[in-house]
């Protein structure tokens, strides 16, 4: 997020530049962009957050999650149901929904992280479909609204904002922007921490890590819980912004969109997946009008893995390094 500051006196400069960028980015689009553009950009930010959760797990732990949408959509459903059926206040419902899906992710993770990465990928796909089936069950139709989904609106305020504020693209942008920065910087720090180094080492050589005295299971479960927390934040912001949840928000379609956004931007670092989310949202607007969103998704997966494995941002960084060698000494982040 802040770039690779490689010598100590450049760190404050990077922080100042980051703060300026953060401030400008939070305020300017509200004045410059149309409501329609902002609405797309908001969707892009939230997709970017989901993509970030997918990308972090890919680049740090070497695991591909194809069930991100079940956390994303599931948190929205729980938020709505906690308010309408269980009479919780909006704030309590958000906390409840967040904790519940993260707990679910922890149990699921504890179960499936033990398998190999390919089986992990299959299992996350299966678990995601399971959640979609749960929501569609006849028995819970009164709660979930079945195939129609739920309109979600709340009375009172969350963080001093009314439901209408969250639905307003201009008012929502600074919230999404702040969340993206907070989470982006957090994940970037984690990847720089001992946990990040441990995860990458486990990804490269799990056996050697065990033979170096490391527990190789717990760090991966922790990583899985962490990325699910990010997906839950993205899902909760989405339901506040969009005002409804539907089975589509739980489905494989959203999971693969997040995957594509991550691949587009590049899975290493925080900037790539977030940029990927924005690119995807605008591209989807273009292609979706012709009913070809899914086709775009499929083609983008193939294209970015086969031809541009580093994604747009990764590719740009590499290009800049080639043109301006020594702009930052690459510190072997893997």
């Amino acid at each position: 997020m802040l770039g690779h500051a490689s010598s100590s006196f450049r760190v404050p400069a990077a922080i100042v530049a980051g703060a300026i960028l953060f401030g400008l980015g939070g305020v300017l689009p509200g004045y410059l962009a149309s409501d329609f553009t902002l609405k797309l950009a908001n969707e892009g930010l939230l997709l970017g957050l989901l993509a970030l959760s997918v990308a972090f797990l890919m680049s740090e732990a070497g695991l591909v999650a194809l069930g991100a949408a079940s956390i994303y959509g599931g948190s929205g459903y729980l938020f709505a149901i906690a308010m309408s059926e269980w009479g919780m206040s909006p704030g309590a419902a958000i906390v409840f929904a967040f904790l519940a899906v993260v707990a679910y992710g922890a149990v699921l993770g504890a179960l499936i992280v033990r398998t190999n990465p390919l089986a992990f990928m299959m299992l996350t796909l299966a678990a995601g479909e399971m959640i979609r089936h749960v929501v569609m069950l006849e028995a819970v139709h009164d709660y979930t609204g079945g195939a129609d989904g739920l309109v979600v609106s709340f009375k009172g305020a969350i963080l001093g904002m009314q439901a209408a504020d969250f639905a307003n693209p201009q008012h929502f942008w600074p919230i999404g922007w702040t969340a993206v920065w907070l989470i982006g910087v957090t994940l970037w720090s984690v990847s720089r921490s001992r946990l990040g180094a441990t995860l990458r080492a486990v990804r490269q050589n799990e056996e050697r890590m065990r033979f170096s005295g490391f527990n190789t299971y717990v760090p991966r479960v922790v990583a899985y819980i962490l990325v699910n927390a990010v997906a839950a934040v993205s899902g909760l912001l989405h339901v506040l912004n969009a005002g409804f949840v539907s089975p589509e928000s739980l489905g494989l379609g959203v999971s693969t969109n997040a995957l594509v956004a991550a691949l587009m931007g590049g899975t290493a670092g925080s900037v790539g997946p977030l940029a990927g989310g924005l690119i995807f949202a605008f591209a989807q607007d273009e292609f979706g009008a012709r009913g070809a969103t899914q086709l775009l998704t499929g083609a983008a997966i193939v294209l970015f893995i086969v031809v541009f494995p580093r994604g747009v941002v990764g590719g740009l960084v590499a290009a800049v390094r080639r043109v301006l060698p020594g702009i930052d000494r690459p510190r072997g982040k893997t």
Binding site: R194, A201, Q204, N205, R208, G213, G332, T334
Partner: peptide, 17 residues
């Protein structure tokens, strides 16, 4: 059996720590 993508220093430091 080493960590191919880490530098020699990174892997030794990780395990030593």
């Amino acid at each position: 059996s080493i960590f191919p993508d880490l530098t020699v220093r990174e892997q030794l430091e990780l395990v030593a720590a």
